[in-house]
Simulated assay, not measured.
Amino acid sequence: MSGAGSLLARTGRAVVSLCIAFVISFVAMAYTPNPNTGPRGYVPRSFVNTYPEPRFVDQNEPLLSQFVEWAGRLLTLDLGTIKTAAGVKPITAVLVDSLSVTLLYLIPAAIIAVTAGTLIQLLAVALERRDLTTKTTLLGAAAVATPVFLFAYLVHIYLPVVVFRLSGSIVKLGYDAQSSPLTIQNLRALIWPFLTMTVYLFAIQLRAAGTDLEQYAGEPFVKTARAKGVGILGICRHVFPHSAARLLTVLSSEMLGIVLVGLYAVEWVTKTPGFGTLTIDAVGSRHPGLIFGVVLLPVGLIVSMNFLQDAYYDLIDPRVDPVS
């Protein structure tokens, strides 16, 4: 199949994946009872009101009509409105606000963690220390196996102590949802999830990079470089291009799903009004537009990352096999 034909087929599969995610979400909303129909319901953090209507199948409008209506609303991004502390806002605006908070700390955390994890494993290969590579990989695996909320609690215990020692005074670290994410108070509050996700992502990358780079430690081109007296950084520059595509695959497909799961736990524990907290609130409140938004956004992101990865393999570096 030609490159254009292959990309067209992958585009079709991406659209089908999004449609399946929507159908599954709609069926769950249609047949799962809503606990908020009674007097005692879920109390969200991100907004004020919950969705008190019964499940879709129990509503007066036919189920098929509701399905077609919501499909059209998704295509036009008309997800409805929701009452927040700042007033009634479109759900799309609430989604954008929560994503802005999450990305503000997650992007620098990911850059630091991925760079540090990859660099450490590259140095382990360059130093010809297989035992060091194995130990760092095992350390990363052990850290990944540790529930991420434990990292959050440890940061919660020790972060105020560190801040107090640096500043000499007690600093309020709570997030003020009424203010901009870029205010001093909110930036300080984001240190908590930032440090937690940095440690968590560093552990993930340490394990992933170690597993991939260990195979190059004994390769002939690495031994030849050492024999010619090439320095450590020179060997790293030799090894990294061979593994860059594979590491990109891990980051864009395997790591993203783990990051999302960790994100939900971290933001809930740290009381950060980001996308993770909004997702939990959406499930508890049962707002249909909000549920469809928090489900389809991650699915769309993962599908898009996989599509870009496949496009890279098909058009830029067809020698690389993403499956092998």
Results as ranks from 00 to 15, higher is better:
V68L: 15
D314F: 13
Q59D: 06
A265E: 00
H242Q: 06
R286M: 10
E219F: 12
S46C: 01
A209L: 11
R73N: 15
I316F: 05
F151H: 04
V323R: 15
I107R: 09
I280A: 09
A177K: 13
P39D: 13
V163Y: 00
D281S: 04
A86P: 06
D131P: 00
I235L: 00
G234W: 04
V222M: 09
A141T: 15
V163G: 08
A177C: 03
L95K: 01
R286N: 12
G12C: 05
A93M: 00
Y31P: 03
T102M: 04
D176L: 14
A141I: 15
S6Q: 12
G174C: 01
T118L: 11
T249D: 07
P241S: 01
D131S: 14
I316S: 01
S180G: 00
A244H: 11
F26D: 10
L127P: 02
V250N: 06
A152Q: 08
L182T: 13
L150A: 11
P241Q: 06
K89G: 00
T11R: 05
G117T: 02
L278A: 10
N36T: 02
F292D: 02
A109D: 00
N49W: 04
E128V: 09
G117D: 07
S253R: 14
Y153D: 02
L308G: 11
S98V: 00
Y216F: 14
F202S: 02
Q309A: 15
G210E: 05
G117L: 03
P318I: 10
Q205V: 14
N186P: 05
G41A: 14
V96A: 15
S98C: 01
T136H: 09
R129Y: 09
D131Y: 09
R129F: 06
A282C: 11
T183P: 00
G289F: 02
L95S: 05
D78K: 08
L263S: 02
H287T: 02
F67I: 06
T224G: 07
V144Y: 09
I204F: 13
G289L: 11
T92G: 06
P147H: 00
Q185T: 12
V269W: 04
V16W: 11
P298M: 01
I184P: 03
Y175Q: 10
R286K: 13
R237P: 03
V171D: 05
L251F: 12
E128N: 14
P298S: 07
I232D: 00
I120Q: 05
L123C: 09
G276A: 07
Y200M: 13
A28E: 03
T279W: 05
V144I: 14
P54W: 09
F194W: 11
I20W: 04
V323E: 12
S180Q: 01
P241N: 01
T133W: 07
Q215M: 10
P193A: 03
T146R: 01
G274E: 08
L95F: 11
Q205E: 14
L79N: 05
T81S: 13
Q59A: 03
D58E: 15
V162W: 09
P62N: 08
G5M: 12
I316D: 06
